[in-house]
Design a protein around this nucleic acid. Structure first.
Lengths: 167, 167
DNA sequence: AGTGAAACGACCGTAGA
DNA sequence: TCTACGGTCGTTTCACT
């Protein structure tokens, strides 16, 4: 059911096979893989009282269903990006066109179309203040249809989690 | 050099052992682990022309140095959270106190202290509009020292990447 | 959905360059 | 930092429940 958001109201009658794929056992598996994505199925199985094969099949199903992914996540600071910011963007023209253009910028890792004072929020990172200025002033503001941008420079990343809905 | 940001200006003379740990080989390794965090060291080695042990040692070093982590990342939509939003928060009192309080709220996965119109940006998720309202109105706004909050409801998550600085 | 067992492949530690 | 290699452990497949 990867791409069937519109059927959600019909769930009582069209309950698909994976509606309950996130039971407590799977939550435990995710929690362990959240600490170490390469932890072996054997050791996960021992901890939660399941055979290795059962763990492996559950993990595979969750990956196939798009419930989770197991990925390398890099640390921007260690990669030499010392400045991060959120850019609030107000669009004058076609919002989706602007969002599409933003996708081409290497230093943007997160783009959201929102309902609110800003039409788009984009998270950007840069090596230093100079390259941040270049990025916002030359690259982002030059995009057709952008009305205004407002910059929220990060002073401290307080908290960041990837286990949405699990803990 | 995990916690030595203040020494960065001295890099020319105090160049530490892992300053160049993110060479092109490591970038290739990260890129492959970005597609599949559980890919075997053997198969990574074959692709980039390195022995299994060399890949394993490099990955271990990057994990130890905090350059990257390999984790399970869950999909909020598939976990039953259909509403996401960014909350811009203006603080009247102690910003760090408010940030600390926000950390205790299960439905907040991302907290940033910023320089800009808002003192704090927090990404929140909720099952539906009703629980989003409860979250913002009852839980967040009740925190001492919060002056105003502004909600940016997500209409579409356009783009999301975890490979900061690699591609 | 889950188990068990056998064959295969990956991982780990370490010696040596 | 790399390769080579042997011992150990994890993964895969399949037959069965």
């Amino acid at each position: 059911m990867k791409n069937e958001p519109t059927t959600s109201r019909l769930n009582q009658t069209t309950k698909s096979a994976d509606d309950d794929s996130i039971d407590d056992v799977n939550k435990k598996i995710i929690a362990l893989l959240q600490e170490n994505g390469r932890r072996s199925y054997v050791s996960i199985g021992k901890e939660i009282g399941l055979s290795e094969a059962a763990v492996r099949l559950r993990v595979q199903k969750m990956l196939d269903d798009g419930v989770m992914q197991i990925v390398a996540v890099t640390n921007p600071m260690e990669m030499g990006f010392r400045r991060q910011a959120m850019v609030g963007i107000t669009v004058d023209g076609d919002i989706e066109y602007v969002a599409q253009k933003l996708k081409d910028i290497r230093q943007i890792d997160y783009i959201i179309i929102t309902a609110g004072r800003f039409d788009i929020l984009a998270e950007v990172f840069a090596e230093d203040d100079e390259s941040m200025l270049e990025l916002v002033n030359r690259q982002i503001r030059k995009i057709d249809g952008i009305d205004r941008t407002e910059l929220f420079t990060y002073m401290r990343l307080e908290s960041q989690r990837y286990d949405w809905g699990v803990r």
